[in-house]
Amino acid sequence: MKKMSFLSKAYMVLIFSFMYVPIAVMAVFSFNESKSRSNFTGFTFDWYINLFRNDMILSALGLSLVIALVASVIATILGTMASIGIHSMHRASRTVIMNISYLPVINPEIITGVSMMLLFVVVKNWMGGKVFGMPTLLIAHITFCVPYVIFNVSPKLRQMDVRMWEAALDLGCTPVQAFFKVVLPEIMPAVFSGFLICLTYSIDDFIISYFTSGTLQTLPIAIYSMTRKKVSPEINALSTIMFVVILSIILFVNAQDSRRQKKSSARRS
């Protein structure tokens, strides 16, 4: 490959600075003593300390984690089972189900949120009592997570050699044993990555939660209410923490990946 021209290098630097300068500015000003957003007046950890004393943020974080975990587990099981069922269906019914599953993915999030809210409102009008809260939030999160599991697991199932399943039966497995001993280990990476996608989407979701949570506050909803107040440097601190957490997770995962790659290539040679 030729060396990259100066122009393209400059262009890449420009785009990446566009993407990262705002984040960097936030990180810098999270240590700013005053509330000013343009003058750095002095160094302080106060905003971080405030953040960890902020009950609203902490309980919202707790709720987000619980919702993400429960929703992801349920969505993963539901989606994996669905993939297996869909896999053995005829082409026509498979296409219909896949297309419907695509709806929450391609529909604007606000539509998904609003439509679920309408459903819950109708249920509420029928049955009365308190409907919005943990259950509606969970249902909403599971609903928009399941398709991602299916889209992860289905291709893996299709890739899998049917003979693998037949070989298990041939060697004496009952169909149930064959599933747990052969099929599941084989599709496990896809199931797991589906689970991870669910976790991140669930933690990150604001719009759908906003319409289905009632008075509950997940972390993104809490962040939203903080941004409504004009000046709150705690947000800077929170952003910085989140960025660092995400960065370390990605670095960790990448390091694992490349280590595994090295190991397997070493074994191969």
Binding site: Y20, P22, I23, M26, I223, Y224, I235, L247
Partner: peptide, 15 residues
Amino acid sequence: VMLPMWMNFLLRTYA
């Protein structure tokens, strides 16, 4: 490229 995507978009917009 993906890293900023993982940060909540409310925070990105707030920046």
